[in-house]
Design a protein around this nucleic acid. Structure first.
Lengths: 215, 215
DNA sequence: ATTTAATCTTTACGTCGTCAAGATACAGTG
DNA sequence: CACTGTATCTTGACGACGTAAAGATTAAAT
């Protein structure tokens, strides 16, 4: 009984079928567990997400997940990594609606906040889930770095277009990241209400805050 | 057996002594539990903090805490509330070293980041501990609001001194809060290393980022 | 067709949050 | 001072969780 960390995970020689009558071998339990975890996350928040609950939701015994994930943290990391990829998509999607550097940066930031507020439990998991840090899982760090890279690149272009010292770009990126991350977290955790600021949606509030941002 | 939520908590008619030989009645178990929780938090992080563990640390049986806290979330809320009061002190302390409005605001923000990075587990608990939201406990929301008030007041003064529209103050406050909160969270969770920015301490990095802040 | 390896199940252990029932000590009344 | 109520603490138990070990079942390779 080989344990997941020692198994080759890349080629995986997929069984080419996932026939339904097969009660024993599931087909792709790994993905099913990730999806089950996502569903639990959206319905009951972080506390509702557990290994046994995910196994139940996937219609499988409680110990089955251990053939696909080393432990609970590994499942959470897989879900979080998927979250970071979705966050990246959310930012890129909005960024590409604009052409000039500054609006592109602003749109990227709005995408960040929009994703976070639309998926609060997932966002919470991504940053500081239980037993989870960005360097724990080998796939999690890169996924997070890719997301940040979108923000970093956008600020870099703005700094260049503004004729600023490129050496400042790193700090500007960090500031921008801090601003959008903090705003997202505050809306989620501290229950900052967009309505209190005369805006209907979190995106609109993000637009207001980011509009005040000066390099 | 009255339950804590129905008990009068204010006057409390303190037993006037906490003699040591008394193995049964503890003296002030409530405070002892809070302190035990704080110790667990600092040593083992959020996951190490549990009702049973706190009871063990306080040298008391597993069910004893239920005479002082309705459930686990109530204990966490008490610890978090204390955290918010300490955060407030940390900000006020640094703010009062300055006299001009803008440096006072900057110092307040640096205090925020310094406190968060010095007490990462506590800060995590304060914003989004398990089963904890700022409106769950009747004492938690006010403690958090008091902390924010320090930041809000500092930005208000700066906005006034700069001759800006006071109506903007709310948004400026939110932006400042977002910036320091995001920076603190990123240092804690995303492992942003101050050394990568040529600074030795989180405070120094905060000073750099906040130095870029323009109203 | 036989073997090997991967996947899934059952059973079990220790820990956790929580509850119910009982023991113990304090506080105020007569 | 004795009595009584009430707050506090203990023991014991229940169900849920993460995890491990050992066995059953199926797929893939020889």
């Amino acid at each position: 009984m080989k344990r997941p960390e020692e198994r080759s995970r890349a080629p995986k020689k997929v069984p080419a079928r996932a026939r339904q009558g097969d009660a024993y071998h599931h087909g792709d339990l790994r993905q099913a567990l990730i999806e089950a975890a996502r569903a639990l996350l959206e319905q009951g928040g972080l506390e509702a997400l557990g290994l046994r609950a995910a196994a139940r939701q996937a219609g499988v015994s409680q110990a089955a997940p251990y053939h696909h994930f080393a432990d609970k943290a590994a499942l959470l990391a897989a879900v979080a990594a998927e979250g970071f990829r979705e966050l990246t998509r959310a930012m890129v999607l909005r960024r590409d609606l604009e052409t000039r550097p500054l609006p592109r940066l602003t749109a990227t930031g709005i995408g960040y906040v929009a994703f976070a507020t639309a998926n609060p439990a997932l966002f919470r998991l991504m940053f500081g889930g239980p037993g989870l840090n960005l360097s724990s899982d080998p796939a999690l760090g890169p996924a997070a770095a890719a997301a940040y890279e979108v923000l970093r690149e956008a600020t870099l272009k703005v700094v260049a277009a503004a004729g600023r010292d490129p050496a400042d770009a790193m700090l500007v990126s960090l500031s921008a990241w801090s601003l959008v991350h903090g705003l997202a977290k505050l809306i989620i955790e501290a229950e900052v209400d967009p309505l209190s600021y005369g805006t209907a949606t979190p995106e609109a509030l993000a637009r207001l805050v980011l509009g005040r941002m000066i390099l």
